[in-house]
Computed example of a mutant assay.
Amino acid sequence: MDNALYVGLSNQMVLKRQMDIVANNIANADTNGFKFESLMTKTVPGAPAFTAGGPRPVKFVGADGVARDFGQGTLRRTDGVFDVGIEGQGFFKVTTKAGDRFTRDGHFRTDDNGVVTTQAGDPVADDGGGQITIDPSKPGAISISPDGIVSQGAERVGKIGVYKFDSLSALEKTGDNQYQNASNQQPVPTTDSKVRQGMLESSNVNPIVQITKMIEVNRAYEQVTQMMSSESDLSRNSVARLGKASSN
């Protein structure tokens, strides 16, 4: 019976982790370019606590990493001059103090020096890895073409880089809706995606699906808890009966 409790406990730990991921998805339903995540699970063989002719090994439940869906989110119009959304695959590259990071969040601005940056002030890379600078003293409206070329009036001032990876498994989440390259893969500029000025990519989270998933996880946790409670009561009653039998 101890084995059932240990298996139930391992299941509870996985369900708690799953609930955290679902809750994070819901919390980021309005985050620009956010990609929803799912917990992968596996069976983990382990030595039984005690068994008399029972299965060996006992199969516990374990987490097997987090899967991320990089599917396209809806592009919504904002009319912001430096708001850009990616239509297709790829990521913007930004330069942070911790190194290069990649994101689908195109809610950009310019700093005091005219450098195009994220809202946190990290420079946005052009297709060559450099910075894009707007001269505020020059006239001319800012336009960004579908291939990422940034123009100030009739003058080209840079090109927003959109980079892709051969395998998205190279990307590791670092926070602030950004990813780092955790592999030896070299990102390359993509040519088959479009950059849409005045638009931002919405999160690809479906709130209804995630709320339904949250209810399912909560019910599963309650069922496991009830099973463990029943096993504990059975064990306690068995010990009590054995104690009475030995005293007679």
Rank of each mutant, 00 (worst) to 15 (best):
I21R: 10
T41R: 07
I144H: 07
K173I: 03
T225V: 05
D127P: 02
G8N: 07
N248D: 09
D233K: 15
L5V: 10
M1N: 06
G8V: 06
V44M: 12
K35I: 03
T191A: 15
S229T: 09
D112Q: 11
N206Q: 15
A125S: 13
Q12E: 07
G198E: 11
Q180S: 13
A27G: 11
V94A: 05
V195T: 09
R196D: 01
A67I: 02
S247G: 09
V115D: 04
A52H: 12
N32K: 04
A67C: 02
I149W: 03
I149E: 08
V224E: 09
F91V: 02
S247R: 15
R109C: 00
V209W: 06
P48Q: 07
A47D: 10
Q185G: 08
T133E: 12
Q152Y: 02
S238E: 04
H107M: 04
M13A: 11
K194M: 14
S10W: 07
F102D: 01
K194I: 05
V209E: 15
G88M: 14
Q12N: 08
N237S: 08
M199N: 09
T110P: 04
F102K: 01
P136M: 11
L200H: 12
P45T: 01
D135L: 14
L15K: 04
I26N: 08
D79H: 14
L75S: 11
G88N: 12
A154C: 01
Q223I: 04
G175P: 07
K16I: 00
E231C: 01
H107S: 13
S38P: 03
D2P: 01
K138H: 03
Q186T: 15
N113Y: 05
D2R: 12
G80Q: 09
T118M: 07
S38F: 03
V84L: 13
M40E: 13
V44I: 09
T117H: 12
Q197Y: 09
V195A: 05
R17H: 10
N248G: 14
G85L: 06
V66T: 14
